[in-house]
Design a binder for these strands. Structure first.
Length: 851
RNA sequence: GGGCCAUUAGCUCAGCUGGUUAGAGCACAGUCCUGAUAAGACUGGGGUCUGUGGUUCGAAUCCACAAUGGCCCA
């Protein structure tokens, strides 16, 4: 499965190493500007078939013998031209001969326009196949510049024979499938040392091999441009050709070219020795294994990853580096015998072992000292100096992390194959592949069952974030200002994980305010009141008599059901969004509607039921949220559970995920409450149109629902509606509601909600009482009083004020925790304020009542 | 050059097994509510659902092509 090949690999001249295909993938740049040049190769001889051909008027043979006939080839890498050893044509294409400045140029007829000579008459048309075997004179005869010309030994791709110098060297023309008629001239520069296609063509046609560039990317030999880096040599190569009349046209092209992901140097395709894993032999197994894996999003499976497996090529896994896992292949310096050693035991068993100590560090440089006797010839066996591609290490993780198969047999088997892995989409060629390839090679099966494949995070403009571009959102600024859990929640809920997403810190701030603060405030509401009332969870029976509580328990258990199922289906986004809308309803409906139940002074069943429901809900939420926002969830859990139950698991992360109680799910209540919410929303709209403040109670709301069934449902929930809309009565009708002097109406589809805006003296008085409560509360707050502090309230006003204070004394006192309502303003008060309420002047004063 | 994904309000996204009037949050303006609130409610402005064809009684939704962006490959 492992072999050494002489193959062309992308090579980084600065790092001095070849790159794997997944590394190359990291460094493509779209807007690379390179030379676009048309070069003339002088034709020396034509194949006999067309050489003898007579044609009236024009003879290509004569032009050849006059030294005026040229193949016109196109390239973007002038520095490879000294290594050119052939030209490739498309067999089926028509090639035209035209005259240009006294020379006769041959190139694909279809591409005349691009070469800038479309207006010339075509003197002759020849099929590419007819030109095969033509000979041409090299642009640079390697022997003149002290560069070796080699040729592959028949059947041994890794071995080359050096060719004798030849002052009259010619190269031959071949045909190849890869020749494009889209761009260029239909005649392709073949330099077997500098391209994979070129190298393979070289093997197939037994072409010469000229390698005039060293591993640092510098031109060797004695060319005028020797010693230059390849890219720097480009203009000088062109200048040299131009001087000799061999440069037809020179320009620039913008195209995609790979660069080193590590150091940004342009990559050079370079033939050199590399160790390969013959993964292509296991291609079918890898494809079969992939069918067992669940991919999210699903299209990756047969799309990007499936394509990658279909087009599998052998894994070039050796690296010319210092750091890394040493390649465990030794070979004999004398007879070239190879051995691959599988472990320490095998090393120790070698005859004539030198440079080995029992406790040695088996990395470079120490490992390089190990040698032993060749079992074939007795020569010295030395380690190949390369290290192993670190992607191989990453792919070996499932067993390497346990040092399996040397130990931890059971630990390995427990965790293999993995249930789930996650990485970004670029890793289809990286970690996803290295894991899958090695697992298939070693175990014949996949090593992961489920994958969430993440899309990339882009900046606010939709551009890829990159350090060089400076558009990176620093994670620390987000973590410092909004927190890790806010960032997590944003990532989970802002969009499906497989999508790319634009990101700016503002979005995380929004998440914090919208979701986390709502959650936290609900939690802290509970904590404040539970502390005031000394509520101890678990000691009181839960009796679900209140419709509101039944609704909350229904919603909660439905939520648990939904979230559990969504997470099982690898959809954290929808799960998170469900939690979000639940928390919003919890805060804006349940707590809002239940407020008075917590505030009232009697510790009755209703109050306990409210506490228990809210408590259970918050605890369950902390468990549901634990995988999403581990810090906030555990903080809630610590205070809600651990502080009252020392025997509870230490952390929410050690608690089992909640299981829904299906018996508590009442779909009818959920639906009915939704309707009640809708009616309230319309009622608020009607109220706000009437311009009567919500604080002012109104006599009646009139509802036109769609059916008698809906009317019944709303009747059951009418206390919630009355309270929410601050009206005294609810009435149902099947008549159209009319907007009028004492009626404000909101319409939505088949629903109509009208508010009767007649204000009786009694209602006005009650409204006044609410105004007074509201003012006192605001004063308490500004005075810096605690919620549970008791006060004495003093007041001053006309008879009407006196009447209100008398009629609503209980209500005002309970709401404001006033031990007394006293007429007259004493000198020593915490705060005095004067108001005009509905045209009536009132002066209020409060002072804290010391216990 | 090939492949995959996306494109819906100023922004971030729902809606995609075709079917009443395309929704939410943020942002903006005004009004209201509030002793849990960096919250909330109501109203308002803001949309040729990227474009062009096609299928259909009916298309944001299905099909084809194109444009733009992102990713991967060459």
């Amino acid at each position: 499965m492992i072999y050494q090949g002489y193959k062309v690999t992308p090579h980084c001249p600065r790092c001095g190493t070849s790159l794997s295909s997944h590394e190359v993938a990291l460094g493509y740049k779209d807007d690379t500007v390179d030379p676009s040049v048309y070069i003339k190769f002088q034709i020396k001889a034509l194949p006999a078939e067309i050489a003898g051909e007579k044609s009236p008027g024009f003879s290509l043979s004569k032009a050849v013998s006059d030294g005026k006939a040229y193949f016109l080839a196109w390239t973007t890498t002038p520095w490879t031209l000294p290594g050119n050893t052939s030209l490739a044509l498309a067999a089926d294409a028509d090639y035209a001969v035209i005259e240009y400045q006294g020379d006769f140029l041959v190139f694909a007829r279809a591409l005349m326009e691009q070469a800038g000579i479309g207006d010339r008459p075509v003197l002759k048309t020849i099929k590419g196949s007819q030109l095969t075997g033509s000979l041409y004179i090299p642009l640079f005869n390697p022997h003149e510049f002290n560069v070796e010309r080699k040729r592959a030994r028949e059947g041994q791709p890794g071995q080359f024979d050096i060719q004798e110098p030849d002052a009259h060297l010619t190269y031959k023309v071949i045909t190849a499938d890869i020749v494009s008629l889209e761009d260029g001239t239909g005649i392709v520069n073949i330099a077997p040392a500098f391209g994979e296609v070129d190298f393979l063509a070289g093997l197939e046609h037994n072409l010469d091999f000229v390698q005039q560039v060293d591993l640092s990317g510098n031109i060797t030999g004695t060319y005028p441009f020797s010693g230059k880096f390849v890219k720097a040599a480009d203009p000088e190569v062109l200048a040299d050709l131009d001087r000799r009349g061999l440069l037809h046209k020179s320009g620039k092209i913008t195209h995609t070219y790979p660069f080193c992901w590590r150091c940004d140097a342009p990559l050079v395709y370079y033939a050199k020795k590399t160790w390969y894993i013959r993964t292509s032999a296991k291609k079918d197994e890898m494809i079969a294994g992939n069918r067992q894996i669940n991919w999210y999003p699903e299209h990756i499976k047969e799309g990007r990853f499936g394509d990658w497996l279909q087009n599998n090529v052998d894994w070039a896994f050796s690296r010319e580096r210092y750091w890394g896992t040493p390649l465990n292949i030794w070979n004999c310096e004398n007879c070239n015998h190879f051995e691959c050693l599988g472990g320490l035991d095998e090393i120790k068993a070698r005859k004539g072992l030198k440079g080995f100590a029992g406790d040695m560090d088996l990395h470079r440089p120490y490992v390089d000292d190990i040698s032993y006797d060749c079992p074939e010839c007795g020569g010295k066996m030395a380690r190949q100096t390369e290290v192993i591609d670190c992607w191989f290490d990453s792919g070996a993780m499932p067993f390497a992390q346990w040092h399996y198969p040397f130990e931890n047999d059971s630990k390995f088997k427990e965790s293999f194959p993995a249930d789930y892995i996650s990485e970004a989409v670029d890793q289809t060629r990286g970690w996803f592949y290295s894991l899958h390839a090695i697992s298939t090679l070693v175990f014949g099966q996949p090593c992961y069952k489920n994958v969430i494949c993440l899309g990339h995070i882009l900046d606010a403009e939709g551009e890829k974030m990159s350090k060089t571009r400076g558009n990176v959102v620093d994670p620390w600024t987000v973590l410092d200002s909004s927190g890790a859990d806010a960032l997590r929640w944003y990532m989970f809920t802002s969009g499906p994980p497989g999508n790319v997403r634009r990101m700016s810190p503002d979005m995380v701030v929004e998440v914090m305010r919208n979701f986390l603060m709502t959650l936290w405030n609900t939690y802290s509401f509970f904590v404040i009141y539970a502390n005031i009332d000394n509520f101890i969870p678990g000691t009181q029976p839960v009796s679900l008599t209140s419709e509101l509580d039944k609704w909350l328990m229904s919603r909660l258990n439905q939520l648990v059901l939904d979230v559990d199922e969504l997470l099982a289906n690898y959809d954290p986004t929808t799960a998170g969004r469900k939690i979000e809308s639940f928390v919003s309803d919890l805060s804006n409906w349940y707590v809002r509607r239940s407020r008075r139940r917590f505030w009232k002074s009697q510790n009755d069943d209703d109050k306990l039921s409210a506490y228990n429901c809210l408590y259970q809900t918050l605890v369950t939420l902390s468990k549901l949220l634990a995988p999403f926002i581990p810090f906030v969830a555990d903080e809630m859990y610590q205070n809600l559970v651990r502080s009252v139950d020392g025997k509870a698991p230490e952390s929410v992360h050690l608690v089992s995920f909640p299981v829904a109680d299906r018996d508590l799910i009442n779909a009818v209540i959920i639906e009915d409450t939704e309707l009640a919410m809708k009616i309230c929303s319309m009622g608020r709209a009607a109220r706000s149109k009437s311009a009567v403040k919500v604080r002012q109670p109104l006599p009646r709301v009139v509802v036109k629902a769609r059916s008698a069934h809906e009317q019944e449902a709303l009747k059951n929930l009418c206390s919630q509606i009355l309270d929410e809309l601050n009206v005294k009565d609810i009435e149902f009708t099947s008549e159209e509601l009319k907007e009028g002097k004492a009626m404000s109406v909101a319409v939505d589809g088949d629903y109509q909600v009208g508010v009767v805006t007649e204000i009786t003296p009694e209602l006005l008085q009650e409204g006044l009482a609410r105004e007074i409560v509201r003012r006192v509360q605001t004063m308490r707050r500004s005075a810096g009083l605690e919620i549970a502090d008791h006060i004495t309230t003093n007041y001053l006003g006309n008879d009407q004020v006196d009447n209100v204070m008398a009629a609503f004394a209980d209500y005002i006192q309970q709401e404001t925790l006033s031990v007394a309502l006293l007429k007259g303003i004493p000198a020593e008060v915490a705060r005095t304020e004067k108001f005009k309420l509905s045209g009536i002047e009132v002066t209020l004063a409060i002072r804290k009542q010391e216990p």
